[in-house]
Design a protein around this nucleic acid. Structure first.
Length: 519
RNA sequence: UCCGGCGUAGCUCAAUGGUAGAGCGGGUGGCUGUUAACCACUAGGUUGUAGGUUCGAGCCCUACCGCCGGAGCCA
C-alpha cells in the first residue's frame, strides 16, 4: 500500500501540534501507530450508537476500523447523529489497542469531518437476492466478500503474468476486432465496422501463433467474447483469457507448461490470500492436496471409464446420497418451520428464517440433481466414441482425482481445424483440456498446432472454410514452419474454483451475462 | 432454443380459496463498550402484467414479461 509515509510524523497524544496533524494513515497500518494521533479517511460501513458513545466502522480500502466517538467530544459526537451508511468522512483520533474492537485496534476520535452524507444506501447488512445485488453491482463491490474476491483475482492475474514473464515469454496484445470467421460464427458478437460486419474476438490464438514465430515464447491476456446462449453458473459472455503460445513445443511440453501454471496459481493463493480465502469460507484442504504432476488420461480412456461399472456404481451411490440428503433437508425444514412458530425472540426468528431460506435453496438444488442424475447415467453408459465430452462427463472424470486432470487426444471431428492430428492415430488430435476439481469444469483448452501447409489446407477445406480469409495464417506454414502449440486459460473459472464460488458472476467486477449488461 | 423453479412493503421472506403480516432498512425517542447492538413507538402495498374460474383469488387455470437454475455449446 502506498501512502504518504515519507512525510508521516507520529505525534504523541498531548502534543501542542496535535491540531495540525495531517498524517494520513491507512487502516491496515494502524497497528504501527498505537498511542499516536492519526487521521483516517474512508466510508462508513456500519454504525451503532448509545446515548453517550457512538461506534463507527470505517472502510478505507486497506481494511476496516472501529472508531469510537464519546459524547465528551461534543462536536464530533453531534455529527455522528447525521451519518448514514456509506457516508464518506475523515477522522482524527488516538490509536488504541482494544480486545473489544474488531481487528484489535480502534480509533478514539478527537475530530470528525463529514465529506459527504450518503443517500439511503440500498444494500443492507442483511441478506439480498442475486437479482437485486446484480442490479446494484456498482455498490455491491464495496462488500467485504466482493473485495476479497477482487483481491484474489488481482493476485492470481499478477501470478499468471509473472509466471510467463519469468520464463522468457513476451506479452503480445492481440486484436479484439476480427474479420468474419468461418469457425463458429454463430457464437461471435457482430459489430458494425464502418458498414462492414466484423466480430469481437473469441481468441487471440491465430495472431499469437504469428508472434510465436517472431519471438519464440509469447502470451496474450485480454477479454474475449462468446455469444453462446448459455445461462449457467460457469458462463460469461465477456471473460478474460490467458493464452501462451510456444514455438518448437509439442503436446507433452504444452501439458507441462499448463500444469506448472495452474500449480503456481494454487500455491500463490494458498500462500498470499489466506485471509481472503478464509473470509469466503473456502475450504483449503482440496487445494492443499494438489501436487505435480497432474493426472493425465486420453479421451479413449475417458470413454472406457464412462462405460465402466465404477462410474455406474458411483452415480448410483450419488443418487442414493442425494435422496438421503433430500430426506434430511425436508425433516430439517419441518423442524425449522415448527421452531419458527414457537420462537419468541426476534433474533431467534431471524436466525430461523435464514435457516429456512438456506434449507429451501438446498432442497431445490438437490431436487435438480436428482432430476438430472438418470440422464447423467444414461449419457455416461451410452456415450459413443466420437462425441464431445459434456459438462457431466467432465465432472465424472474429475471426481476420480484430487487434482486437475488433463485429458488429451480428442477425436478430431469435435475439435478445431488447426489442431494437429496424432501421427500414431489420425482419428484424434494432439490437444489437451484441463478439468478443474470439485465440478468447476474446463479451465484450460489447448493443442499442438498443425504446422504442415497442405494438411492445414485440407482440414480447412473439410470444414468448408474460406481459404482467402486465412492466407496470412497459412503463410506461417510457408516460411520456416515449426512444431508449436499453446493453450487458453479461462481466468474467471480459475478464480471461481480457487475461491470456491458457486457462481462465476462474482469473479469479475462487472459481469456480462446472457440477458444482463448493466451496470 | 428446450426443461424446471420463483415473482407479495425499499430489502429478505410469511400468509388452508375467506380482514395482506414479520424482521431488516427509513423516521421519532431512550440507553456510556457496541460487534448483523438493544428497547419502545411510527410510516410504508394496484401481491410482475393481462385475461379466466369462483359468492369470494396473493393462492386455482391460460398467456405474456422478468429473474434464477439446468441442458445444449463452451473457457
Amino acid at each position: 500500500m502506498i501512502h504518504s509515509a515519507p512525510r508521516l510524523r507520529m505525534i504523541p497524544v498531548g502534543d501542542d501540534e496535535m491540531n495540525n496533524a495531517k498524517s494520513w494513515v491507512h487502516i491496515a497500518d494502524l497497528g504501527k501507530h498505537v498511542g499516536c494521533l492519526v487521521s483516517v479517511r474512508g466510508w462508513l460501513q456500519a454504525h451503532r450508537s448509545s446515548g453517550k458513545v457512538a461506534f463507527l466502522q470505517l472502510r478505507d480500502g486497506s481494511g476496516f476500523c472501529q472508531c469510537v466517538v464519546a459524547a465528551d467530544v461534543p462536536d464530533a459526537f453531534a455529527k455522528t447523529a447525521s451519518l448514514t451508511l456509506e457516508s464518506s468522512l475523515t477522522v482524527v483520533g488516538e490509536v488504541r489497542a482494544d480486545q473489544r474492537a474488531p481487528g484489535g485496534f480502534e480509533l478514539l476520535v478527537r475530530e470528525l469531518d463529514v465529506i459527504h452524507i450518503a443517500a439511503e444506501y440500498p444494500i443492507s447488512r442483511k441478506a439480498h437476492g442475486t437479482d437485486f445485488l446484480m442490479n446494484h453491482r456498482h455498490l455491491w463491490l464495496r462488500s467485504p466478500r466482493q473485495t476479497a474476491i477482487l483481491r484474489i483475482r488481482h493476485r492470481l492475474i499478477q501470478a499468471m503474468r509473472a509466471f510467463f514473464d519469468e520464463r522468457g515469454f513476451t506479452l503480445i496484445d492481440t486484436p479484439l476486432l476480427t474479420p468474419g470467421a468461418a469457425e463458429g460464427a454463430g457464437t461471435l458478437f457482430p459489430v458494425d465496422y464502418f458498414g462492414d460486419p466484423v466480430y469481437l474476438a473469441q481468441t487471440g490464438q491465430l495472431y499469437l501463433e504469428s508472434a510465436a514465430m517472431a519471438l519464440g515464447k509469447v502470451y496474450c491476456f485480454g477479454p474475449t467474447f462468446r455469444a453462446e446462449k448459455s445461462k449457467t453458473r460457469r458462463h460469461l459472455t465477456e471473460f478474460w483469457m490467458l493464452e501462451p503460445e510456444v514455438a518448437f513445443a509439442e503436446l507433452p511440453e504444452i501439458a507441462e507448461l499448463a500444469e506448472a501454471l495452474v500449480m503456481e496459481l494454487v500455491t500463490t493463493a494458498l500462500r498470499d490470500c489466506q485471509a481472503e480465502l478464509a473470509h469466503l469460507g473456502r475450504e483449503v484442504a482440496p487445494l492443499q492436496k494438489i501436487a505435480l504432476p497432474f493426472p493425465r488420461c486420453t479421451y479413449s480412456e475417458v470413454v472406457d471409464l464412462l462405460h465402466s461399472g465404477q462410474v455406474r456404481s458411483q452415480l448410483e451411490a450419488d443418487m442414493v446420497a442425494a435422496e438421503n440428503r433430500l430426506g434430511e433437508l425436508r425433516a430439517q425444514l419441518a423442524e425449522a418451520e415448527e421452531a419458527r412458530g414457537g420462537a419468541r425472540k426476534q433474533w431467534q426468528q431471524e436466525r430461523l428464517d435464514q435457516t429456512l431460506q438456506q434449507v429451501r435453496e438446498e432442497i431445490r438444488e438437490v431436487e435438480t440433481r436428482i432430476r438430472n442424475l438418470p440422464a447423467h447415467m444414461e449419457s455416461a453408459a451410452t456415450f459413443a466414441w466420437g462425441q464431445d465430452l459434456g459438462g457431466d462427463e467432465e465432472t465424472i472424470v474429475s471426481r476420480q482425482f484430487d487434482a486437475p486432470v488433463i485429458i488429451t487426444h480428442y477425436p478430431k471431428t469435435v475439435k478445431a481445424f488447426y489442431m494437429k492430428p496424432d501421427p500414431q492415430d489420425p482419428r484424434v488430435v494432439l490437444n489437451l483440456d484441463m478439468i478443474a476439481p470439485e465440478g468447476y469444469g474446463e479451465i484450460i483448452g489447448g493443442s499442438q498446432r498443425e504446422e504442415d501447409e497442405h494438411a492445414l489446407l485440407a482440414r480447412m477445406d473439410e470444414e468448408g472454410m474460406d481459404r482467402a480469409a486465412y492466407e496470412w495464417y497459412v503463410d506461417l506454414r510457408r516460411y520456416g514452419s515449426v512444431p508449436h502449440g499453446g493453450f487458453g486459460l479461462g481466468v474467471e473459472r480459475v478464480v471461481a474454483w480457487i475461491c470456491g464460488l458457486r457462481h462465476i458472476r462474482e469473479t469479475i467486477p462487472f459481469p456480462r451475462l446472457m440477458g444482463r449488461l448493466t451496470p
